[in-house]
Design a protein around this nucleic acid. Structure first.
Length: 264
DNA sequence: ATACCTGTTTCCCG
DNA sequence: CCGGGAAACAGGTA
């Protein structure tokens, strides 16, 4: 269920394993989450090491281990992290397990759109350092939005918000939430957004990102009451603001929920 | 059965 | 070469 806030929460679950040695590494022999990585290297390099720190950036997670090892996790569409009891038996879709003395850290992903990567070296991997400015960073300025809007003038604004090069961590429900709050129709072309609308849009990006981190990111579960999130997949589908019917349609390749009487 | 799905990559088109 | 859109990936759920 992973957008930036769920990723932050997932990552925090594994923090129980920080500072503890990993006695055994178990890799799923068939899961696609390994992509081009070599499973043996996970075992050879991580077994016996201690999980030393964790980081998130948008939908990306990075873990560091003693012995100059790093591991990246992307949760894809259905990935999740969990802590299980030490008696736990690996299940079909468990992609990676770290056995510690009193618990097991699990990364599972039934649909296998997630991704694991290993990096050896003193410093963080290049792919991590190359990530775009985080939406939680003070350097995430409105210029990033204006540049994206002008560069992709022919893309629907909904599709642009999902572009991880500009808005790392933004996912389908967050983008709908942002556009609903900014009162913008998701199919509007990016190039046609006025400066006034752009200002509102930027503010709502910050509002949704920070609000999600404070709620979902901290405690898991759902965003606060009153957010569009709670109505977006339910039938009946009334806008929390206008009480008018919501619409679901395919925009930018993704199902999009919006309120025609509110968003222009 | 059928049609979904909080994501990314690849391929094809203009 | 670029930007945009569709398809593909795979399994669980309604």
């Amino acid at each position: 269920m992973p957008e930036l806030a769920e990723v932050a929460y997932s990552c925090s679950l594994w923090n129980e394993g920080l500072g503890i040695q990993i006695d055994q590494v178990i890799t799923n022999p068939t899961s696609r989450v390994y992509r081009n990585e070599n499973r043996k290297e996970f075992i050879q390099n991580l077994q016996g090491q201690t999980l030393s720190s964790s980081f998130t950036h948008g939908k990306q997670m990075l873990f560091s281990f003693t012995g100059n090892c790093w591991m990246g996790i992307h949760l894809g569409m259905t990935g999740s992290l969990a802590i299980e009891e030490k008696e736990y038996e690996p299940q079909k879709h468990d992609a990676l397990l770290f056995r510690q003395p009193s618990q097991i850290l699990v990364f599972r992903d039934p649909r296998q759109f997630g991704r694991l990567r290993l990096h050896l070296g003193k410093n963080k991997p290049k792919w991590w350092n190359d990530l775009p400015t985080s939406m939680l960073d003070k350097n995430f300025h409105s210029e990033i939005l204006s540049n994206a809007l002008s560069r992709h003038a022919r893309r629907p604004i909904k599709a642009l918000l999902l572009d991880q090069r500009y808005f790392p961590g933004m996912g389908n429900w967050m983008a709908d939430e942002v556009l609903w709050r900014a009162k913008l129709k998701p199919s509007n072309l990016s190039g046609g957004i006025s400066k006034i609308d752009e200002g509102r849009l930027f503010k709502q990006i910050l509002f949704v990102v920070n609000g999600a981190i404070k709620s979902v990111g901290k405690y898991g579960g759902d965003p606060p009451t009153g957010w569009l999130f709670h109505t977006r997949w339910k039938d009946g589908l009334l806008c929390p603001k206008t009480k008018n019917p919501l619409i679901r349609e395919q925009i930018g390749g993704r199902t999009t929920c919006w309120c025609p009487s509110l968003q222009k």
